[in-house]
């Protein structure tokens, strides 16, 4: 089938065609999600080269195992799950190189302690350029532990449900919830440094 006529098709119809061996339909699925999967892979691995590997490996795996896709979840959720596994595997492999730690953080409860409380302006991000904002947001995410980062990326950027996130990461629902809360609070804290109302500085440092 010609590519142009596929662009408007529902995901489920594309999946059905792809499963029947229609490579053009599969290529359309790839085109729909490659940007999101690449972004997700970059967020989790924090490395462009690894992210590209993850991107390729994920779609290759999906193509290979398309017959195992049950269709009871969305294709997008399925490919995200594959990509997260590939990305975490990369991190684990790097861990054996001793360059990154994926160890479970010991739960001291301390990282839910809120250190800085300052109100933000109405649209604080407006005072930064697109590039500046992008780099502030990326740096903040980078500073999170890999498992907090993965939970935040899946829940709040890719907008998976708590259950889907739990499934993708092999965590329990309560574990996803507690990590998400910490990730959100830690990011809030980091962004507060940039976004707090200017007038509030005086109080913070006096």
């Amino acid at each position: 089938m010609a590519l142009s006529s596929l662009a408007g098709l529902e995901e489920s119809a594309l999946v059905t065609q792809a499963r029947q061996g229609d490579t053009v339909a599969f290529a359309e699925l790839v085109r729909r999600y490659e940007g999101k999967i690449f972004r997700l892979a970059q967020h989790i691995t924090q490395n462009r080269e690894d992210a590209e590997d993850v991107l390729q490996e994920s779609f290759m795996k999906a193509y290979e195992h398309l017959d195992q896709f049950k269709g009871d979840s969305k294709f997008y959720t399925w490919i995200v799950r594959i990509a997260v596994n590939q990305a975490l595997m990369k991190l684990r492999r790097r861990k054996t190189d001793k360059s990154v730690s994926l160890d479970e953080t010991i739960d001291t409860g301390e990282d839910t302690v809120v250190r800085e409380i300052a109100a933000w302006g109405e649209d604080p991000e407006q005072s930064f350029s697109r590039e500046e904002l992008g780099s502030i947001l990326d740096t903040a995410i980078q500073s999170l532990e890999p498992l907090y980062r993965s939970v935040f990326v899946l829940r709040d950027i890719e907008e998976l449900s708590t259950e889907e996130t739990a499934e993708a990461l092999g965590l329990s629902v309560p574990a996803v919830k507690s990590r998400l809360l910490r990730a959100r609070l830690q990011l809030r804290e980091k962004l507060t440094r940039f976004f707090k109302r200017k007038g509030d500085d005086a109080f913070a440092y006096m």
């Binding site: 300052a118 109100a119 933000w120 604080p124 991000e125 904002l133 947001l137 935040f152 709040d156 950027i157 907008e159 959100r184 609070l185 990011l187 809030r188 962004l191 507060t192 976004f195």
Partner: peptide, 11 residues
């Protein structure tokens, strides 16, 4: 309020 805004900015 600031946590809500954090999530919104990333979304």
């Amino acid at each position: 309020d600031t946590t809500r805004k954090t999530i919104q900015i990333y979304k």
